[in-house]
Design a protein around this nucleic acid. Structure first.
Lengths: 227, 227
DNA sequence: TAGATTGTTAATCGATTAACAATC
DNA sequence: TAGATTGTTAATCGATTAACAATC
């Protein structure tokens, strides 16, 4: 149930840490872009938006890549984190559903720059086929299997309406895709061994709404620091 | 630091529970659409994608809205959760940055159907001004303050490039916006009392990549259920 | 009354944090 | 050597879960 049973040092990295590694990676890239070659856990934590104790604890799961009294080499740490995540070379991705969101995703430069390559855009609507988005031609959903086989695609992105999401997920799984990023506002069921992550735009807004409501009530204290 | 000090029954709902309330709300809406008027915690948990113990524990923070031996009235529970979140009437939202993602967000029907109203679309690029997206005219970023004042906007959405995000956030905060949903791939700093939630498309993909990598290594066990 | 299901308790698990010994 | 900063320990905190008494 917990995947591989430990044993020969297959480091078990906590899920909360895994979710922050990409944040550190981005922060390090930002530092490197600014010409900074070395940083302390304090400095990196600041730009990553976490506290330094948490950062050091997180990094300790990967190994000892810092130097006491000195800090971390930006490029070296960046490579180690990228290696740990597995984004040192481009991973092929397919996007299904080329509506507004699919367009945005296809054009999203952050995929390319962070180790992903959009190898295909698929849509069920035949009138969309042949259209070129972000340099990639929109193809029929039925081409999924051939594309997955050709490019050895392991990650699929669902950007369809909610009603189509489960069907798309089933087809992806049947083709051998084992990681799914789901933007459709629907819970999808997948077999054991397949990972699903869900991004839900309106849920994030609702969480904000909850806190917003709490602020305006109970008029006791108000925003203390107004910058 | 923990906001209002308890006292006269200002229920303190755990953050993890708050994040799931919108999920329950959506699940209940789905059940209602299917004509289901009553459900058990087991049934609701199934469609929400959580286990029933967690669901009941979460709902217990809101009050006692179920009936032992019977279950929950779908419409009643739905109303209670919506009231708790604060989305019983439309909350005004502004979106800044009308690129691909901004377009997708403006057209996203889930906002409207879940208690949010996009009152303005703003972009720094003058060539975009006047364009109508999803029935709303794109206006100048400088109009932000007037719009926030006119519609009493409390929630802002940032869909700009990373380089503009901090500046947009500063301007939003200066206008009195106290909740920000940030889609730009950048950490933004805001004063105490302002909430920020961040949606990062490439981070989600990277988390999937990490698990994907782990699957292909250690060839020990494989996907047991292939559906 | 018997069966069903909630709401709550308590145990467990995992994540965060402060503090500091190790060490550059 | 003195100063700085990592990597780790241990304490704390919060979230999850199973179990079951309460009660419809």
């Amino acid at each position: 149930m917990a995947g591989r049973t430990a044993g020969e040092g297959v480091r078990e990295i906590p899920e909360a840490t895994v979710a922050r590694l990409p944040v550190y990676l981005r922060a390090l890239t930002g530092l490197a872009d600014d010409g900074i070659t070395t940083c302390s856990s304090e400095e990196l934590a600041l730009v990553a938006g976490v506290n330094s104790a948490k950062l050091r604890k997180d990094l300790s799961y990967l190994g000892s890549y810092g130097t006491r009294g000195v800090g971390y080499d930006v490029d070296y740490l960046r490579y180690q984190i990228a290696r740990e995540i597995g984004v040192t070379q481009d991973l092929p991705v397919v996007i299904v559903g080329i509506g507004n969101l699919g367009h945005a995703l296809a054009n999203y430069s952050g995929f390319r720059s962070r180790g992903f390559r959009v190898v295909a855009l698929l849509d069920a609507d035949p009138t969309r086929h042949g259209e070129v988005v972000a340099g990639v031609e929109v193809r029929a959903f039925d081409d999924l299997e051939a594309i997955v086989r050709e490019h050895d695609v392991a990650i699929g992105v669902i950007a369809t309406p909610a009603s189509a999401a489960q069907d798309v997920a089933d087809r992806m799984v049947a083709c051998g895709i084992s990681s799914v990023l789901n933007f459709a506002p629907a819970v999808i069921a997948v077999p054991e061994g397949v990972d699903v992550r869900k991004v839900d735009l309106s849920i994030e807004l609702q969480i904000l709404a909850y806190h917003e409501q709490r602020k305006s009530h109970g008029a006791g204290e108000r925003m203390e620091a107004a910058q």
